[in-house]
Design a protein around this nucleic acid. Sequence first.
DNA 1: ATCAAGCTGACGTGAAACTGACAGCTAATT
DNA 2: AATTAGCTGTCAGTTTCACGTCAGCTTGAT
Lengths: 226, 226
Amino acid sequence: MRLLLVEDDLILKDGLERSFVKSGYAVDVISDGEGANKLLTYQEYDVIVLDLGLPKLSGFEVLKRLRARGSNTPVLILTALEDTQNRVKGLDLGADDYLTKPFELAELEARVRALIRRGVSGGSAKISFGVLTFDTTNRQCMAGDIALSLSAREMALLELLMLKAAKVVSKTKIMEHLCSWDDEISENAVEVIVSRLRKKLNVFDIEIRTIRGLGYLLAKLENQHS
Amino acid sequence: MRLLLVEDDLILKDGLERSFVKSGYAVDVISDGEGANKLLTYQEYDVIVLDLGLPKLSGFEVLKRLRARGSNTPVLILTALEDTQNRVKGLDLGADDYLTKPFELAELEARVRALIRRGVSGGSAKISFGVLTFDTTNRQCMAGDIALSLSAREMALLELLMLKAAKVVSKTKIMEHLCSWDDEISENAVEVIVSRLRKKLNVFDIEIRTIRGLGYLLAKLENQHS
DNA sequence: ATCAAGCTGACGTGAAACTGACAGCTAATT
DNA sequence: AATTAGCTGTCAGTTTCACGTCAGCTTGAT
């Protein structure tokens, strides 16, 4: 899942980034409003964590322009301001959630998870598909009652495929979701990850089907047709 | 917009109800968990405001069962508990937002508005014909509940035929639809694609009928005559 | 019967995808 | 610091597959 962090406080920035990366997100960080606004005109994210107090262009303004462009990417606002006024203003501008500093990391992560979940699926912390159950909270995937040991990449790919249920996910989309701005991977890399993940999944009644020229989709073995 | 308020505190209950009604919501109020759970099995809402501390069945449980039934109705949790644990637990159970008492009315309303706004999304363009459903955005065609595995060309042809419903589509039209202007294909190529698509469709009650000299049309098997 | 229109199995080609091997990197351990 | 193990991207050789062409056949109108 790809996340944009807009924050100018150096310490907070680094801490949050490291924490999110560790949790398996592809994170881009930017520290001023103007840059964020520009970035958001051409790059899609799964979720945005936005500090309101920013140099050059306020968080309010970034949010307002984002929504004005018709985007409905989930946005979580960070604010040092205690008063209700600004929260309400933020929410009415189209923010989906907010957190008041100081906050606990665990809570921020839980809220980010909730936003992503809401955006893509409608369900709870656990995503299911056939015998597979993916627990987004502690990032573990079970097949029936045995735990799969997946690498970070494989995990992220499987999460994406499961979130999209049985829909086709293009390689480009996969690349976007697995990589942050400064590291890009080839299409072939995606094929390799798919290949490795397949090896671990093909014991069960679930396969990653290739749709030539379009992408991949997760499918139960029985519903295939010719 | 229809809203369910699950709250046992008498004073809060009345205040919230009056306020929401005033804002134009259709509000149902119920004060115990068991009743709420039962109600939710047969009544759909646009948004649910749910207190966690309830008699008979806790808010957690109500939420868990709601999600277990596959509902993705937005839920906003109200809680008197200050500790982070319960917030995280609630969000991970599939809540979309929460508010800690005491809160301001204006803020609750702003959040409810935000949830509803989020809710109305989704729904990609779909074309149907008989048992066939063609999802144009995901480029996938279902026959009943099983997915057809079609190649790009077959997909494009079927899309065109389904768009024109039961009308005749000429080979020329098909050629135009399948090819960009810089690559042309023969009429025979169209026949081949039709042939291949037929093989995959003739399991179902749908056929591609040939109208000599004019083109093809999609038809349900039962309405053939002579 | 004749002939044009349409059908379809077979085949070749080029593009897309797969995968084993390898190497750089990171993180953990000694 | 050195070592080791696991992760991950790249590369290259191979395989798979879509799809247009062709050729021979069937169909149907006259």
